[in-house]
Design a protein around this nucleic acid. Structure first.
Lengths: 209, 209
DNA sequence: TTGAGGCTACCGAACGCTCGCTCGGTTCGA
DNA sequence: TCGAACCGAGCGAGCGTTCGGTAGCCTCAA
């Protein structure tokens, strides 16, 4: 995690060329999104990856380990990008909020299947992995809460309850993964800009009478 | 649906005393929320309702019929309340937006399990029920879009893309069902007021320089 | 140059178990 | 005497997982 933070500032958090996921996990993501974890059998998983069932068990010890690998990857990728966005913003709190929202929207648009699973399959994780996922989600939320809290205490934002407004913003951005369509009229970048605007207006100063 | 509209104006859409759901469905909601549709067996469903499996099949023809009944009930209840809220607001567009958001938040707070399933188990529905659910969801979304569109064309709101801002508001409100806690620091009514404020600022006029 | 040994990447078949669902009842208030 | 409301036992199918292999490749002493 300490090594991550050093490289975080250098990585391009806006780059979504291709997900560096092993082919087996890539097809598993698609299948889990369509049928859900419990609605997907190991046979389905195997044939989606052009593989036999024992072939699948050569790479992962269980079906559960596959979903865990996917969820861990999703949370780690989002966190890395969020840290890079924060580093790019520097000390300007308004800029921190803008880039954080942009980062959230881009991730939930370009990695929509991954983000969808992260939001949907929490209950399919066994206790240890579930606890880890919740911790990652809380850490992610805390990052935005801290930005809003700092902004409020410096008079940059109007956020009487940063936890509350952070949650509103996060669920707003998370929702993008449910309806985003790469072939749709709006690009991820355009949506990100719109949502950054919404966020700014939710906690912005200038519009108070 | 025509009869519904007549009684809609008269019903109290803010009343959430108790869900008039048969006991079997009530326990099924809890179980589905915890384990998901495919993660729940008919044996689990039956014992949660203090019943044998054949007893369960006396009331419903299949496991699928149970989830369908729950989903239909959820969408119908929200729609009835939304229509009543719209009727109460009258012709005032700003009031229509306020009450619509209030209605969405109250529903997703007080009926959080129901709302959570409606958002989560779409993929578990077989084609016919799924199509019906999607149609209900679209109709629900269109109601808010129409309010925003009318408001924009009358100069009450600033909403260059009503579809877009409606989706942002809806996912924001839908998210309430994921974290709301009746024992938490904020009541449903307080959250509803906050969110109505967020919505107003997202499309409000007065804060433009 | 060869071939034995070990490694990775798989596969066909099948294990024990649980699944959704049903059959043939029983109980009980009307 | 009838129908509504159940239940014990069990059906065939599908589940996650495992066993006992095999094919192909790399390494390295003889």
């Amino acid at each position: 995690m300490t090594g991550d933070q050093e490289t975080a500032a250098r990585m391009d958090w806006r780059d979504f060329d291709e997900d560096p996921l092993p082919p087996l996990l890539r097809t598993a993501v698609q299948t889990f999104v369509t049928h859900g974890y419990h609605g997907t059998s190991t046979r389905t998983l195997a044939s989606a990856a052009n593989m036999s069932v024992p072939g699948l068990y050569h790479h992962f010890p269980s079906k559960q380990a596959i979903i865990v690998a996917i969820m861990d990857h999703a949370m780690a990728d989002l966190w890395r990008r969020s840290e890079a966005a924060l580093a790019e913003a520097g000390a300007d709190l308004e800029q921190q909020l803008q880039l954080h929202i942009e980062c959230l929207v881009l991730f939930h648009a370009h990695r929509k299947e991954l983000a969808f699973l992260a939001a949907t399959e929490l209950r399919s994780l066994e206790p240890v992995a579930r606890a880890r996922h919740i911790a990652a989600r809380d850490r992610q939320e805390r990052m935005l809460v801290e930005i809003l809290r700092a902004g409020a205490s410096h008079g940059v934002f109007v956020a009487p309850d940063p936890r509350q407004s952070a949650r509103a913003m996060i669920t707003m951005c998370t929702g993008v993964s449910q309806w985003f369509d790469a072939a749709g009229p709006l690009s991820a970048v355009e949506i990100a800009a719109d949502y950054a605007g919404y966020a700014e207006r939710i906690v912005g100063r200038e519009h108070r009478p």
